[in-house]
Design a protein around this nucleic acid. Structure first.
Length: 795
RNA sequence: GCCUCGGUGGCGGAAUUGGUAGACGCGCUGGACUCAAAAUCCAGUAUUCGCAAGGAUGUGAGAGUUCGAGUCUCUCCCGAGGCACCA
């Protein structure tokens, strides 16, 4: 037998599999379907590092396992190729984003192919393909028609470095998630999607998903539901009111002042006769120029300006209370205005202390006089409500002042415009007569035009604005002169529905064929990074729910089960990054050790969702395992089957199946190593037993298995074979090791028949010399027997 | 500050969910083979006392429940991730 030459073997079978098109998926109603999906990558310029394929290998293992268990499996791959990273790469390397993207896709695909992932490449998609983004634009138009899209002039998050507006989900600690630049607030016209209309459903439907609890929790926190009341405060001597949201209407009697966000529209209302107008305007300006970080971390010292000459009236007790503007109140949460109850809110307490405002306790339970008491309790200083408990008082007081109980969410509407080139053009037309009109659906896709210069302008318009003959168009409604919207969509648009496109990748007449959708939807198993919990996974759930509402899909959640992948860190423990020069390229590993070893190692490194450091030294373990398999195979087989080997084999078939289902690949591989160790020790195995070993090994290292499979005389592809069954009879032990404890400590182990009775076990244990020694002649107080496991003697 | 997870040999990690802690792999030590090395094979490898048989200790720290705790409960320490002036 020849040496184990991975390069020869792997290349040979990769070609055969490709020629036979073994990975092709078709609708086949005879079988149960299984749709397993990876989060598709951004094809960046630097190519894959060894961390990327970890999730892909895992889904590949499951996919192969499911195929061998008679499932009709859909397992596709594609490219999330629009968006800033691709564009920035293109800018830096002075090529057109399209050219750069195509190159990067080619590189990524070549790298992935070396790993022999069983993707049906005939279903490959790219979000930048006009045939794809036609339907991204189509969905947007449907949202527009349903009133889910609106134009806003409110200040939004602006990244001065990327020169574009961003959604809340694109920020990280007040800075741009992509480049780390502190975010500014900027007023530019924006298209915004009312994702908040779906907040309650996004929250409630989490309950029906088989996702890891911590991911659901991240989404719950992000959506941030809070129950409270909406209450109106009148302004003294004016016909004006201030609307307020509070979670503590029970503390209304303690509201001794009010605070408006500096951007609050009421501040600019001319009816208000603000005496210190200059001071107010100065504060507003200051607040506007502050970055998000300055506003939230500035030593937490609160600032504000009183609106002189204006008073509000507390609706509970008629008290006249002052009004402030302060940037600790956020313009875009609740109503942008609060009633301040310094006695029972820490922020209001701090502000009241600084500006010497009155503090009135209205809830009993105060522990110290240096801080607000934020708990509940019986009311005081609250007129007729004195003595009532907080929970009841919330409803009663709200009712009394004509407010209403309501719910508020932290989730913000989705700022959807990007002032960049490399994205889907937003298919809207501005007409002076008709207002905003969508591009007629039969004109979709609205192609991204060629442009001389795709550098961002920084003006709030995208580079598309410079193309006169594209921008200038006619109104589809009245035929008059009109201008196209020049902003593009965010990166998240395409990825919000791509899972559907794989089902029906070439459809040009509908977003998806209904029968195909019904057959494949939803995605049964979705695998990807946890960093998408409050970004892509929120948007995709929203987008999919919208498509459900308009009848385009039959199920209201896109991803039934979700599993996150743990990162692979570099050997030095840091993140793999060009910056640290610690990136390991899978191509090098595969050339040197083989794709099979690479696949095995990534699955063996540790628990799938844990982040583990790469170790080329440890990689040798799986490699040795494959070499031992190869050598053992070369020695030939016995005719008689060895019952000891059979037992381990059947245990292994059982465990590997269970572990694949539970995503515990590391222990599945460990068990196969145990089998290998047993084989070498006993030096015997029948060819039939070897076949079954190869079958369960095949999802992990398909090339070497396929080679050995063919050497056994089979002409079939291993992927098309049946997963073996284990024989439960062969796994059970006739004998077990009975553990004998005295006072909780193991003092002896005795080999006994597995079905030993309690009585026999007790007498056997007591007969042991070692045990007698520990009993020291004392009479056992109590003897505990656990079937098949142990005897515990208490003295 | 709040919400999630975590903390087990020199290293990555196992542990049937309360029942022999350290499976499996890496590394290391000794031996075989070799002129030698690599590779391979065999044996060993938590700590500690002991020549050994054997004993004691041991899953971040401390308490508790239990015949029995890595696993359950409480308090605390440390690490990772998320949220963060959200009224």
């Amino acid at each position: 037998m020849e040496r184990y030459e991975h390069q020869k073997i792997e290349q040979k079978w990769r070609e055969k599999w490709t020629d036979a098109n073994v990975y092709k998926t078709t609708e086949d109603s005879g079988k149960e379907k299984f749709y397993i999906l990876d989060m598709f990558p951004y094809p960046s310029g630097v190519g894959l590092h060894v961390g990327h394929p970890k999730g892909y290998i895992a889904t590949d293992v499951i996919s192969r396992y499911k195929k061998m268990n008679n499932f009709n499996v859909l397992h596709p791959m594609g490219w999330d190729a629009f968006g800033l990273p691709a564009e920035q790469y293109a800018l830096k390397n002075k090529v057109h984003p399209k050219v750069a993207t195509d190159q990067n896709i080619a590189t990524f695909k070549k790298q992935l192919e070396k790993i022999s992932l069983n993707y049906d490449w005939e279903r490959e998609i790219s979000t930048t393909d006009p045939a794809f983004y036609k339907w991204t634009q189509w969905a947007f138009i449907q949202m527009f028609k349903k009133g889910l899209v609106f134009q806003s002039n409110e200040p939004i998050n602006w990244c001065p470095s990327c020169k574009t507006g961003l959604a809340n989900e694109d920020l990280e600690n007040g800075a741009c998630e992509r480049c780390g630049t502190p975010i500014e607030k900027k007023k530019i016209p924006q298209w915004v999607i009312k994702i908040t209309d779906y907040a309650d459903r996004l929250l409630a439907d989490l309950d029906k998903l088989e996702w890891q609890d911590h991911i659901k929790e991240l989404q719950r926190n992000w959506i941030g539901r809070s129950e409270g009341a909406r209450i109106q405060f009148k302004i003294k001597n004016e016909e004006l009111k201030i609307d307020v949201f509070t979670t503590r209407p029970d503390t209304l009697f303690g509201a001794t002042y009010m605070v408006l966000a500096p951007e609050h529209e009421l501040v600019n209302n001319e009816k208000l006769k603000i005496k210190n107008w200059d001071e107010v305007v100065a504060y507003q300006k200051e607040a506007q120029t502050k970055t998000e970080i300055e506003r939230t971390t500035e030593g937490r010292e609160k600032t504000g300006v009183k609106l002189e000459g204006v008073m509000a009236i507390n609706p509970a007790n008629g008290a006249e209370i002052p009004i402030y503007i302060a940037d600790y109140v956020l313009a875009d949460y609740g109503t942008g205005a609060i009633m301040a109850v310094p006695a029972h809110d820490e922020r209001d307490w701090e502000f009241a202390k600084k500006y010497d405002l009155s503090i009135i306790d209205v809830i009993s339970g105060r522990i110290d006089s240096d801080s607000a008491y934020t708990g509940g309790g019986a009311l005081l200083n609250s007129g007729e409500f004195n003595g009532m408990e907080s929970e009841e008082a919330k409803r009663m007081i709200t009712e009394k002042v004509g407010g209403e109980m309501t719910v508020n969410y932290k989730l913000r509407d989705w700022v959807f415009s990007r002032q960049r080139y490399w994205g889907e053009p937003i298919p809207l037309i501005h007409c002076a007569k008709c207002g905003v009109v969508p591009v007629p659906e039969e004109e979709l896709p609205l192609m991204l035009p060629e442009v001389e210069n795709y550098e961002p302008t920084g003006t709030g318009e995208s580079p598309l604005a410079a193309i006169e003959n594209w921008v200038n168009t006619t109104c589809p409604t009245c035929g008059g002169e009109a201008r196209r919207e020049t902003n593009t969509m965010p990166q998240w648009a395409g990825s919000s529905w791509y899972h559907l496109r794989y089902i029906d990748p070439t459809n040009d007449t509908a977003i998806i064929d209904k029968d195909k959708e019904k057959y494949w939807s939803p995605v049964d198993f979705y695998v990807g990074g946890a960093e998408h919990a409050t970004r892509h996974l929120i948007y995709a759930r929203f987008w999919h729910k919208f498509l459900y509402d308009i009848g385009a899909v039959s199920y209201d959640e896109p991803y039934k089960k979700l599993q996150t992948v743990g990162l692979i860190m570099a050997e030095d423990g840091r993140k793999m990054s060009k910056r640290w020069n610690n990136v390991i390229n899978p191509d090098d590993v595969i050339d040197r050790f083989g794709s099979d070893t690479f696949r095995m190692y990534e699955m063996f490194m540790g628990p799938f969702d844990a982040s583990v450091a790469w170790s080329t030294e440890s990689l040798i373990g799986p490699r040795k395992f494959l070499e031992r398999l190869w050598k053992f195979f070369g020695k030939g087989f016995t005719d008689e089957s060895d019952p000891q080997i059979e037992k381990v084999l059947h245990q292994t078939i059982k465990k590997v199946g269970e572990d694949i289902n539970a995503m515990k690949y590391n222990t599945a591989i460990a068990q196969m190593m145990i089998l290998m160790n047993a084989l070498e020790k006993h030096k015997s195995m029948t060819a039939h037993d070897m076949e079954r070993f190869l079958l369960i090994l095949s999802p992990f290292c398909p090339h070497i298995v396929q080679e050995l499979w063919s050497q056994l005389g089979h002409e079939s592809f291993i992927l098309q074979e049946q997963w073996p069954q284990y024989d439960a009879q062969k796994i059970v032990d006739d004998e077990i090791t009975l553990v004998v404890q005295v006072n909780g400590k193991v003092r002896d182990t005795i080999t006994v028949r597995a079905d030993i009775t309690e009585e026999d076990a007790k007498s056997t244990a007591l007969a042991s010399e070692k045990i007698q020694k520990y009993l020291e002649g004392k009479e056992p107080k109590k003897i505990i027997f656990v079937q098949g496991k142990l005897i515990s003697i208490v003295v």
